[in-house]
Design a protein around this nucleic acid. Structure first.
Lengths: 117, 117
DNA sequence: CGGGATCCCCATTGATACTG
DNA sequence: CAGTATCAATGGGGATCCCG
């Protein structure tokens, strides 16, 4: 009896953790933006704009701002002419690398499966 | 030169793979729904409805339908009275378990970090 | 170049009620 | 219990222009 309760309690915590993650990673583009920065280590605004197919500059700007607020990325203004801005993952952001990698692997497998059908 | 091209080509493939994954997993609730089924192995409609806080039956129905179309979950009608429907992950859906686990772990860490700030 | 501001539409979602 | 149907609203996000 106690045991069943503990199970359920544990599942609730797990579900909450998943929700916490998704709260940060939600939005149509967030994962893609993080991937771009993650795979290139450092990436400029216009580069990401190009990497993430279909995103508008408004949305990119918004997503980057949110990611910065959540301390997943670091924004650096380079004093070049004209100005360029560089984004990189923070240590906390880097801890998402495993998830990005898993999503990449899974995406490849999924594509195979779809084309096989 | 060739080498740089290869790098970029590889990154493009990785980015596409991430997008492929997110195409399937998008939607406000999909990950949470999968988590519920994943953690309990088998789960009924009303159970998931209860697990995923805030979801409406309409949305749950819709998300489940999409997940079934993408062959991530299997739907089984039990001939009980009244009828109940059971959902479980397919083999392909089970391959998401790693991602769910990582999201759980990351969510826990993230929560710690937020409260520490 | 890297964004901010504005306008505006339609898809996503919620609420509610109904059915087998 | 497991959905469906219908209506309404909101805000996500595209397009465009502008600015430092």
């Amino acid at each position: 009896m106690e045991c069943i309760k503990d199970f359920q309690q544990e599942h609730k915590l797990e579900m909450r953790a998943v929700r916490d993650s998704m709260d940060v990673l939600n939005g149509k583009w967030k994962i893609a933006v993080i991937s771009s920065i993650c795979y290139y280590n450092k990436r400029r605004f216009s580069d990401i704009l190009h990497d993430v197919e279909g995103i508008s500059n408004k949305m990119l700007s918004k997503e980057l701002k949110e990611l910065e607020l959540n301390q997943l990325i670091k924004r650096t203004v380079l004093d070049s002419q004209p100005v360029s801005v560089q984004y990189e993952l923070t240590e906390h952001g880097l801890s998402l690398k495993t998830i990005i990698t898993n999503l990449t692997v899974w995406g490849i497998e999924h594509r195979k499966k779809i084309f096989a059908t």
